Amino acid sequence: MLEHAIWWHIYPLGATGAPIRTEHGAPESRLRKLDAWLDYAVELGCNGLLLGPVFASASHGYDTLDHYRIDSRLGTDSDFDHLVAQAGARGLHVVLDGVFNHVARGHHLVTERPELVKWDGDRPRGWEGHDALVELDHANPDVLDLVVDVMRHWLRRGIAGWRLDVAYAVPTSFWREAADRVRAEFPEALFLGEVIHGDYLGFVTDSTLTTVTQYELWKAIWSSLTDVNGWELAHAIERHTVFAERFIPNTFLGNHDVTRIATRVPKATTVVPYLLMTLPGAPSIYYGDEQGFTGTKTETWHGDDEVRPPLPATPSDLSPLGAHVLHHYRSAVALRRRHPWLATATAEVLHKSNEHLTFRVHDGGRALTVDLDLATPGVRITGEGEHLHIVAHA
């Protein structure tokens, strides 16, 4: 599945307009608002939905209260089953966000099963300074049993796999045992670990997870375009090639945790999708990036709001200002679909300077050459019957 995966990444609580830090109110079937966007995802060229948290939580979704219950702000079990069925009818695989490193301080385990969480003296240990989040004790076998049971439960409900939040903070031995037990029933289950820095290859090898998030490449793309520095991107592509020889990295230009690519490099909004789709990996497109949505991530109480906005009721309600960006995303995805071998290809840097970068992506007798002008910026793609030259103006 991963060789052909292109995900549309959605943060459901934000996309459906659910309240985050205010009273949740009565249950509401907001998940069904996504029905209107499924054909849009297919027309974009995606075959998967990478969903942010959907389980009962205290606020933003990453503070889970119950891993077995759909958040009432999003609806009920039947609303979730409906979404999976509607997605499946369109060939869209659903991947859920599993927050298994920590739980909300209000989770029943903290008081009812205190041996399952970590403690600092007489106080549950907060995760990375977040007092509202309590770390699970992954050395306790009952925590492993819980995580495996949750994973199986939702796989039995029709999902294709899991994005594992904060995977880097959990022992790789824990993931290895969990994945082994889940694969005994679901051998094709996908496990995408969130890993920001560190030894990607070692993590995948030791954990046996399917893949990890390629933050190195994400950072190099926007940073090189911002600073007009082809050397950084060339270095990242060379490292990316080494990773791609062993696994298929999850590549992306944005997600729910970072400032929007259109905010970081507005002059290159129509160029970056071609980089994403020509490099090896399994790409994900964060909802709205394909429309040129802007938004800044800040370290404040409401710092995620701009990058997790509500979608309009239907795609027809989108601003026409995003049509030009959407055209290039669709074109880039179509290019990728014409050349599915790119997912597992080899990228080779041919030329690098501050303002220009040329790399060749090849697989046996098939090849594409990408010439990137970081100063303009623009990109030209040639080979195998393709010849594209895209120039974006600020």
Rank of each mutant, 00 (worst) to 15 (best):
V370E: 02
V212K: 00
W119P: 12
G193N: 03
A56L: 15
W175A: 00
N229T: 03
P283Q: 04
H387W: 09
D142A: 15
S284K: 04
E112N: 15
A343C: 12
T263K: 05
P124K: 05
D289P: 09
P309M: 04
I6C: 10
G48Y: 02
H339R: 04
H153M: 05
A56I: 06
V228Y: 05
P27T: 13
H327E: 11
I159S: 03
G230D: 02
E43H: 13
A375N: 14
D180M: 10
S173W: 06
L342Y: 04
V379W: 03
L217F: 15
R337L: 12
F247M: 06
A26F: 02
H351C: 04
T64F: 05
I261S: 06
T213L: 14
L50I: 02
G303Q: 10
P273C: 04
P309D: 01
Y68W: 15
E112G: 14
Y68N: 07
H351Q: 14
R246I: 01
A313E: 15
I261G: 02
G322D: 04
E135V: 07
D371E: 15
V195N: 08
D142I: 03
V195R: 11
E185M: 01
V272H: 04
D39C: 09
R163S: 05
D142V: 13
G378S: 12
D77M: 11
I159R: 04
L133A: 10
N229G: 06
V134P: 03
V150W: 12
L96G: 08
S59Y: 05
T376K: 13
I261F: 08
M151N: 08
L233Q: 10
E386Q: 14
W8N: 04
V147A: 12
C46S: 15
R308M: 03
I159Q: 04
F100N: 04
T251K: 05
R366P: 01
E28K: 11
T226S: 14
F186N: 07
V54N: 07
R264C: 11
A36D: 14
L372Y: 03
S207F: 01
G25T: 08
I381F: 02
R90A: 07
A236M: 04
T300A: 12
L253R: 02
I390F: 04
V361L: 02
G281P: 05
P124Q: 03
P249K: 02
A167I: 00
L342Q: 02
L83A: 08
P53Y: 05
E290W: 10
